[in-house]
Structure formats: C-alpha cells, structure tokens
Simulated scan of single mutants.
Amino acid sequence: MQRWRGYTIIEMMVVMVVLGVLASAAMPLVELSAKRAKERELKQAVWEIRQAIDAYRLAVDAGRIGRGDGASAYPPSLSALSAGVPDMKAGGQAIYLLRRIPRDPFAPKSLPAEASWGLRSYASPPQEPKAGADVFDVYSTSAEVGMNGIPYRLW
C-alpha cells in the first residue's frame, strides 16, 4: 500500500484563513504607523521653517538684512529663506537660512514644496491666517485631524 505525503485542500484552506485573519489584524497597525510618521515629518518641517523665519527676523533686527520702507521684519516669501538674502555686514554675501523648503507631507505630491504650505502674514490675525506682503508663519493646508485630536492646520 502506497502512502501519499502532503497536505489536503482543507488544511491549505485553514492555513489561508488564518493568514488572512492575521493580515487583516495587522493592517490598522501599518496605517497607524504611516500616519504617525507623516505627523512626525509635519512637526519637524513646521519647526524647521519657523526657526528659519525667526532667524530671518533676528538678522533684520541685527542689521544684517535690510528691509524696505514700510516692510516688516519678516521674509517676503518662503523662497527667500532658501534662495539667500544679502548680508549687509558681510559685503553682500548671501545668508541662507534653509537648504531647501520642506514640503507639507499631507499636501498633494503634485504641488511644489513652497506651494504646499499655507502662509500667514504679520498683518493677519491668528484665527484667520491670510497670505500677505511677508511670511510670519506657516501652517498645513490639510483638512485632516491629527491623532491628538487637533487639526493639522492648527499645529
């Protein structure tokens, strides 16, 4: 009598069902991990841009960056932070406050990094941020809410 070795179709189906249950249990953890990573990236990008804006303001106050009549002490655009501005005390040598403008991780990938942010000018109130002649602050334009319950635009 010859004995066949191998698995029956029932055993294979049971294994497939068990693997499916395990995979479906792991999916929410993967999604949660991806969202957490994007939130960390957003937090870092906002912090980096705000640090550069503050450094620009300090350079204006120190007389290293000139400003026009009636202009605020804040950069005229985000690109000024990475394109460089002339240093008045170093013979016009450029001051670079950012290597590159980080992009909002929740913005559409088709947007360039500078356009991925919402801009608030110094003249606009915090409750209703609007772009203007300068960049006082940046915020995410995403309508999503963070895992902490605060909308990303308020971070």
Results as ranks from 00 to 15, higher is better:
residue 47 W to E: 12
residue 112 P to F: 10
residue 129 P to M: 00
residue 98 L to G: 13
residue 114 E to L: 00
residue 38 K to P: 15
residue 86 P to K: 08
residue 37 A to R: 06
residue 81 L to S: 08
residue 84 G to S: 11
residue 123 A to C: 10
residue 63 G to E: 04
residue 55 A to V: 01
residue 32 L to W: 14
residue 70 G to R: 09
residue 82 S to Y: 07
residue 39 E to Q: 08
residue 62 A to K: 15
residue 111 L to R: 05
residue 106 F to N: 02
residue 111 L to N: 08
residue 46 V to M: 13
residue 85 V to R: 09
residue 81 L to A: 06
residue 52 A to F: 08
residue 55 A to Q: 12
residue 86 P to Q: 12
residue 49 I to K: 03
residue 130 K to E: 15
residue 131 A to R: 01
residue 111 L to T: 04
residue 38 K to E: 15
residue 66 G to T: 04
residue 66 G to W: 02
residue 129 P to T: 10
residue 79 S to E: 09
residue 81 L to Q: 07
residue 63 G to C: 08
residue 132 G to M: 12
residue 39 E to R: 10
residue 101 I to A: 01
residue 32 L to Q: 11
residue 112 P to A: 10
residue 83 A to P: 04
residue 51 Q to V: 14
residue 99 R to Y: 06
residue 93 Q to H: 13
residue 113 A to I: 10
residue 119 L to P: 01
residue 131 A to W: 00
residue 36 R to Y: 10
residue 84 G to D: 01
residue 59 A to P: 05
residue 124 S to L: 03
residue 110 S to C: 04
residue 46 V to G: 02
residue 75 P to Q: 13
residue 115 A to F: 01
residue 116 S to G: 01
residue 93 Q to K: 15
residue 46 V to A: 02
residue 121 S to Q: 09
residue 34 A to T: 13
residue 57 R to T: 14
residue 116 S to C: 03
residue 60 V to I: 08
residue 78 L to S: 05
residue 65 I to R: 05
residue 83 A to S: 13
residue 73 A to K: 07
residue 72 S to E: 08
residue 31 E to N: 13
residue 31 E to L: 14
residue 115 A to K: 13
residue 73 A to T: 14
residue 129 P to E: 09
residue 126 P to Y: 11
residue 84 G to F: 02
residue 52 A to W: 00
residue 132 G to P: 00
residue 78 L to Q: 02
residue 127 Q to A: 11
residue 71 A to T: 02
residue 38 K to G: 10
residue 77 S to A: 14
residue 78 L to H: 02
residue 33 S to A: 04
residue 128 E to T: 12
residue 62 A to E: 10
residue 87 D to E: 04
residue 55 A to W: 03
residue 49 I to F: 08
residue 65 I to S: 00
residue 94 A to H: 04
residue 80 A to S: 14
residue 127 Q to D: 10
residue 65 I to E: 01
residue 52 A to V: 02
residue 73 A to F: 02
residue 43 K to E: 14
residue 72 S to Y: 01
residue 59 A to L: 03
residue 120 R to C: 00
residue 46 V to R: 07
residue 101 I to R: 00
residue 35 K to S: 05
residue 104 D to E: 13
residue 60 V to S: 01
residue 109 K to M: 01
residue 44 Q to V: 12
residue 66 G to E: 14
residue 48 E to K: 10
residue 121 S to E: 14
residue 92 G to N: 10
residue 85 V to F: 02
residue 118 G to S: 02
residue 89 K to V: 12
residue 88 M to I: 14
residue 94 A to G: 05
residue 110 S to D: 06
residue 99 R to V: 15
residue 105 P to D: 15
residue 32 L to K: 11
residue 38 K to M: 12
residue 68 G to D: 13
residue 109 K to S: 09
residue 123 A to G: 11
residue 64 R to G: 00
residue 119 L to A: 00
residue 105 P to L: 00
residue 122 Y to E: 14
residue 97 L to D: 02
residue 109 K to A: 07
residue 79 S to H: 04
residue 47 W to F: 10
residue 120 R to Q: 11
residue 109 K to V: 03
residue 32 L to F: 12
residue 45 A to W: 01
residue 117 W to M: 06
residue 70 G to W: 13
residue 58 L to T: 07
residue 82 S to M: 08
residue 46 V to S: 03
residue 126 P to R: 03
residue 56 Y to N: 06
residue 130 K to C: 08
residue 125 P to R: 07
residue 99 R to A: 15
residue 48 E to M: 11
residue 67 R to D: 04
residue 50 R to M: 15
residue 69 D to I: 09
residue 41 E to Y: 07
residue 126 P to K: 07
residue 87 D to L: 05
residue 46 V to Q: 03
residue 75 P to I: 05
residue 127 Q to F: 07
residue 57 R to V: 12
